[in-house]
Nucleic acid binder design. Structure first.
Lengths: 246, 246
DNA sequence: TAGGTCCTGTGACGACGGTCACAAATACCC
DNA sequence: GGGTATTTGTGACCGTCGTCACAGGACCTA
């Protein structure tokens, strides 16, 4: 792992920014003028799998936009444990809150796949924000939604009656965001190791493995290479709420 | 508990708003003009202990500022469990994120003491924000810090090696915010029941009771009516990190 | 002082799940 | 293709902590 890696392959991918920005993410509904201003601030580079974009505690150089690929935000405890706070998909933004509050990154960002990442330096971005109140508002809105997700995760971790409940919640939440309905069930691309899942819900690899095995045996899910098919959403849901199993 | 209680004693406390706003909280560093505009939007009322300001799931009517007293934000699971997401002190704001993102309140707010609370309706507030970009920015900044706290709590819940570690963390965090150093140690006003603490860290009343008893026996803390004196911050810290005890 | 209600302290018990250990399976790379 | 690294599946063990149960305290009201 490389603390301050720099672009591995610095060639600008012109199409990336405009496309991602208009479809999804914080800046999606900005007027064209604002978008092209933002566009002029960014630098885009291609990072390999496992690249570290920034490290917990570092003071915020700027924000990152994931144009393609996948990344994760992880917080570490002193004894080497870590939890995955957020999985970041195409079009999402990293480091925004630290840039806004000018406080150290509170998590480390690492790519999970080769990823095209745009970088916008802090000061130009803040200047841009000061000049455009509606962008500031949409940033605030985005942060609010982030906050809601964080609180949801907190309640989950504290309130979930059991580890199976956490796994069920994780699968359902993931399906809600990235799943596609088919005849046999909800098809969820889930290219994460059991280890990653465990870290995301604050459990252990072995438990996740056992629990997924159990779900499979009870025909709640089916695993297919890098993806999971949820056969019985209701079943998972009742596991999640701790009700006496359906 | 009263879902939509309305002011119990609707008399405006003129001094409250100006004083609280200037000292602490989101709006503390606003120019005078902005403050007096906000001031004109607010309605202030006195609520008794146990009053419910808003309920999880309700669509956001507006935001609340706690001028005096104390309140808590709690999230509930379907089976009656609840976790205290945040304890709200004088000068702090409630419901801001829901107002900004126009999504349902994701937690319920309840006073823990008789409290003076100012209310600002949603639409006028949003209008005010749109008109004043630096206020929008300071709101974004505030939300960022909220987000950091929420993530910290998440990592705590997931990474803490044990329940004693969570309790230690809770005490230290509380001390950092509200403690006062004296000769014998850090003096922390902590008028919370063990039940409240347990809910705040996702544990049980009995465990908290036992753990505090243990801390007391090991001379890490001393309890004095409604307040705790931390005698050995380092000791607590090593409990928190799970190191082999100092 | 008597009678509530709420909070605290403690004992006993049991299971959930984390840890260790190892084997099988799969993916990755020259 | 073979060789290595990573990921997954499972068994055994046992400590932690949540649950149940009850007794003693603190505090308020009458």
């Amino acid at each position: 792992m490389n603390t301050n890696p720099g672009p591995y392959n610095l060639h600008v991918i012109e199409s990336c920014f405009g496309c991602v920005m208009r479809e999804e993410g914080v800046f999606c509904h900005l007027p064209h003028a604002a978008l092209s201003h933002l566009n002029s601030l960014r630098q885009t580079a291609l990072y390999p799998r496992g690249a570290v974009l920034f490290v917990e505690g570092e003071s915020p150089r700027g924000l990152f936009i994931l144009c393609s690929g996948q990344a994760k935000l992880t917080a570490n405890s002193r004894d080497g444990q870590s939890i995955t706070l957020r999985l970041v998909e195409r079009g999402e933004v990293l480091g925004l809150s630290s840039v806004i509050s000018n406080s150290p990154y509170l998590a480390s960002a690492e790519t999970l796949k080769p990823s095209q990442v745009s970088f916008i330096p802090r000061l130009p971005f803040l200047q841009f924000l000061r000049a455009s109140p509606d962008v500031a508002l949409s940033v605030a809105k985005h942060l609010s939604m982030e906050l809601h997700k964080a609180w949801e995760k907190t309640s989950l971790l504290a309130l979930a009656p059991s580890t199976p409940a956490k796994v069920a919640h994780f699968l359902l939440a993931w399906a809600a965001e990235h799943g596609q309905k088919t005849v046999e069930g909800v098809h969820v691309p889930l290219n994460l190791t059991h280890e990653e899942i465990a870290r995301s819900i604050g459990s252990s690899r072995e438990s996740v493995s056992r629990i997924l095995g159990d779900f499979r045996q009870r025909r709640l899910i089916r695993v297919n290479g890098g993806s999971v098919i949820i056969l019985e959403p209701h079943g998972l849901h009742s596991v999640m709420t701790g009700s006496p199993a359906g």
